[in-house]
Amino acid sequence: MNIFRLAGDMTHLASVLVLLLKIHTIKSCAGVSLKTQELYAIVFATRYLDIFTSFYSIYNTLMKLIFLGSSFSIVWYMRYHKTVRRTYDREQDTFRHWFLVLPCLLLALLIHEKFTFLEVLWTFSLYLEAVAILPQLVLLQRTRNIDNLTGQYVFLLGGYRGFYILNWIYRYLTEPHFVHWITWIAGLVQTLLYADFFYYYFQSWKNNKKLQLPA
């Protein structure tokens, strides 16, 4: 474990807790894309299948349980909670996210490190995570102004992946044979997707005005 990875995990944890807190306290999910949340639930479900077969540390297992629990709770709130589900803007959140799942699955069947069931699903989860934010970014563009909790959620999510890139550089420099192109490229693509959001987020923060994404 290194400081970059710990910072990344904590930022990731903060992003899901910020979102869960928002939805739980104000009983609203306005501005949140259910599609992105569903994709994230699939990402964690396919990534953490090894939770039963291999144990690394209490920390590792605990965090997996938290991520699984929080992502499925958010989906549950947005789909079934009587108050929250009414605040979900279904008309705007129309990204056909299933069009993201299939190509990621095909790609994982083609490019992976080992052709085993767990490995292919794990690789699928990496590819899917890289694009999972797209429905949320599209929704933010459509709804124009961003309420600051949703903005913080996307910002923290981008920051977590940014810290992970620093973690991979650190591990590459300090651990011999630590080379994982698939993880690195998927993580880099994901972080780049956030780049323009970060640009507008900082612009709004610097000029101290509401965050407006260009149409």
């Binding site: 077969t53 690394y56 590792n60 794990w122 992970y164």
Partner: peptide, 10 residues
Amino acid sequence: NNNDLTKDEL
């Protein structure tokens, strides 16, 4: 347990 270090990350 297969502690291949690729999977120690979240």
